Simulated scan of single mutants.
Amino acid sequence: MPTCTAPRPRPSSSHRRRPAGPTAPRSRRKPISTTSEFYLAQAAESARAARETNLSNVRERCLRAEAAWQAMADRLIRNEQGRQSQAADKQRQQDANR
């Protein structure tokens, strides 16, 4: 049965729980991927899982997950474009002041 994973909101620092057992040092921890490609891939995987399931509740969950992943990808892409635009504007201002 296909499964889809909905994105989990990051807890605020005051609500983080400490693991019961020993934890890996920071250098060996796997980095969290926050690229638009990752989010788009997760959205596509959730859409695929929704198409392949016969259970309506699973399909609805996967479609909700797809929408959430897509929204995060769209937001990240807009932010990246805004940063690039601001950097270009700043460079133009610096060039004009010279």
Rank of each mutant, 00 (worst) to 15 (best):
G21Y: 09
A87M: 13
P11R: 13
T23K: 10
R51W: 09
A44Q: 12
P2E: 03
G21F: 04
E66A: 08
L76F: 07
L76D: 09
K90W: 00
A6L: 06
Q84Y: 05
S85Y: 06
R98V: 06
R75Q: 13
R78W: 03
T34H: 10
Q93F: 03
Y39S: 01
R16S: 05
H15R: 11
P9M: 01
R48E: 08
P9S: 04
A6P: 11
N79D: 01
Q93T: 11
R10H: 05
M72Y: 02
S27C: 08
T34F: 01
S33F: 02
W69I: 00
R59V: 04
S27Y: 07
R92K: 14
R51V: 04
R75A: 15
D95Q: 08
N79L: 07
A71E: 05
S33M: 05
A43P: 04
K90D: 01
P2I: 00
Q93Y: 07
D89K: 15
S85Q: 14
T5L: 06
A47G: 13
D95C: 01
L76N: 06
R64M: 12
R98W: 00
Q84M: 13
R10K: 13
T53H: 10
L40R: 15
R10A: 04
R26Q: 05
N54P: 04
A24G: 06
L55G: 09
P11K: 14
E37P: 03
R48M: 05
R17A: 00
T3M: 10
A71G: 08
Q70S: 13
T5Y: 01
G82C: 04
T35I: 12
P25G: 13
N57I: 07
Q81L: 15
S56Q: 13
M72R: 14
Q81P: 03
N57H: 12
S14Q: 01
A88T: 14
M1E: 11
A68H: 12
S33C: 06
I77M: 05
D95I: 05
L76A: 11
R92S: 06
A67T: 15
D89C: 12
Q91L: 12
T53G: 09
R83D: 06
S14H: 01
K30A: 10
A65V: 05
P11A: 04
A20H: 10
A73Y: 08
R83S: 11
E80I: 01
P22K: 09
L63C: 06
R10L: 07
E45K: 10
S85N: 12
S46F: 08
P25A: 09
S27D: 11
S27E: 06
E80G: 04
I77V: 13
Q70V: 01
A65S: 14
R48V: 05
M1Q: 14
S33P: 11
S13W: 09
